[in-house]
Design a protein around this nucleic acid. Structure first.
Lengths: 342, 342
DNA sequence: CTGAAAGCGCTTACAG
DNA sequence: CTGAAAGCGCTTACAG
């Protein structure tokens, strides 16, 4: 009675062993295909497993250390739609996989601080780590990934990193695509509000933008390039400067949705009609993209999929310690979502 | 060597017990707030837990049969900042607690459909259920909660419900407070954009608003009350009507942040200065509240805390089957956050 | 090829 | 108020 009823009904490895007339570890070996079991025994045990509907208890498996239970996540302690969306996606995926997530926020993305944070997470039992910019870059710079003793994966970086599995989109190509879209729609004076230089993804987007302009024979004018910090407010302010220019841009490409929302806001305030007089584009396709007016043309990042793929890869690597070094680089497809702002 | 190295460094209940000079079960009792531990011991153990960064191994807990593994969540299949924030908060809390979450979205909130959805979740192994409006109300109406055989909790309802543990703020009081704030700031023609009538929280907010007006001897004018549906667009449209009125309101109270954002947008478009000519308030304090301009005065709901408390309560109830019937009603404090829009 | 033993980290009765 | 003992279900060395 004290014990929840589902446990009473449960078929254990003991029950299988008794009925098959073998020991529990033989059942274990059969189940895990260790191949050290004789064919007749194997057949008999499999029959009993089938008969009894045996399903191994995951909690017991984890307790022996042969299944991964805990994953750590480090993210910037900043109010960003993208970070929020990523944390949510990772949490949902982790919850679905029954993984315990240890989440740490930090403002200090120096290599040393990042390494310390990661070690703490491992000490608290994290068997694998997930990072978001700028911590992925910092971890790679500290070149201490291997010392951690657990596999590390990073979401949304600009490129592959040493000893770290990366799951990302091609930021360069995405920025090119959205800039192309604007040029093809007839825009000629295209300004850009970039993200912070510490984020590799932010730099890749700027490069992609410049490359697209170049392809179309358009100049990249320094006056039309402002560095933001990924916040709504920085977008607001950048637009204030851009729209005060004597020769106003006819489009502004923002490096994320938060800043694009700020740009839209300034445009409204100054009576600049969007998209008639000014096109605005975002990046990430976060929730805010459909909560502004007009709704935002932006690059869709498959955040949910990136999160679950990252978790799968990192859990798989954790099960196979010999494999820590073989970092992978998974590049998922993005798409340009055209909405009212362009 | 066969065992992953991270296990060597791992902080276990043993390590905590040794360092604190107590037995492991005392640590266990402290951690689980059994209240059978003396204050000095308790303090000492807590300090060591903090110092070592101890996180209990969930697999071990589950193996003893004292931990719940699966919880189901039912929410409306609608794009809402509040729903998103709630799902994220529940997922994060679930992931931290190592709970496996089964999430179901539905458009049909009839009592029958809700009951069917809940049963399906239980059949899939959910040992407890979490609901959000309007499903909590629907479940209570079906009066089939007890048949489910698992404890049920609801977030953000207007009041307590039969057989369902509720975790909420006092929506009535919160709406009164924010309306009071506007009156005290000198506003006299206060309009309201309400939420859907199927949501009990929405109704409570409307009542609170009216009550505050009454207290101050202000009329509740039907012309100044528009029913929205909690979406950005409905806020946009409601404001269009309100601001076209010959005798324009000097404040608009919205029943959530999405609608308030829409109202701000319309005000901007029509050149109505906020807050000089028009004050606008939201409800929930979701991410959008700081991504509009001016930022939104709103009611802060402690969504993260509500989510983790709900999960704790429901998991606790699931551990104690005798206790299913004793639904609780947990009312957490809210706060009015004053920002630029009022 | 197969098994007896120990242990993973925690909690639950049960003693003192 | 605190602790010694047993056990949850499984796997991993280690023997035979």
């Amino acid at each position: 009675m004290g014990r929840p009823r589902q446990y009473n009904d449960r078929v254990t490895i003991q029950a299988v062993a008794e009925r098959a007339g073998v020991s529990t570890m033989t059942v274990s070996n059969v189940f895990n295909r260790k191949g050290k079991v004789g064919a007749p025994t194997r057949t008999r045990v499999l029959a009993v497993i089938e008969e009894l509907g045996y399903v191994p208890n995951l909690a017991a498996r984890r307790l022996t250390g042969s299944a991964v239970a805990r994953v750590g996540l480090i993210h910037a302690d900043r109010d960003s739609m993208f970070i929020n969306a990523t944390i949510a996606a990772v949490s949902i995926a982790a919850a679905e996989m029954g993984l315990q997530l240890l989440i740490r926020a930090s403002q200090d993305a120096s290599p040393d601080a990042t390494k310390a944070l990661a070690s703490g997470l491992v000490r608290s039992g994290a068997q694998a780590l997930l990072l978001i910019p700028p911590f992925a870059e910092a971890m790679a710079a500290s070149s201490a990934t291997m010392d951690l003793g657990v596999p590390v994966a990073a979401l949304s970086t600009a490129s592959a990193l040493a000893d770290i599995t990366t799951i990302r989109i091609d930021n360069y190509a995405a920025a090119r695509a959205i800039t192309n879209h604007l040029v093809e729609a007839g825009r000629r004076r295209i300004a850009v509000v970039a993200g912070p230089a510490t984020h590799s993804d932010s730099l890749a987007r700027l490069d992609g933008h410049r490359s697209a302009l170049r392809d179309h024979g358009l100049l990249f004018e320094p006056d039309l390039c402002i560095a933001g910090d990924f916040t709504f407010l920085s977008g607001l302010e950048a637009a204030e400067r851009l729209l005060a220019l004597p020769d106003r841009p006819d489009a502004i490409v923002a490096a994320n949705d938060d800043m694009a929302a700020g740009i839209l806001w300034t445009a409204h305030r100054r009576g600049v009609r969007v998209p008639a007089e000014l096109a605005v584009t975002g990046f990430d396709d976060t929730l805010i993209a459909t909560r502004v007016w007009p709704s935002l043309t932006t690059v869709h990042q498959p955040i949910r999929e990136m999160a679950s793929r990252a978790l799968e890869l990192v859990v798989q690597a954790a099960r196979d310690p010999e494999d820590y070094g073989s970092a992978r680089d998974l590049v998922l497809p993005f798409s340009v979502i055209e909405r009212g702002s362009s």
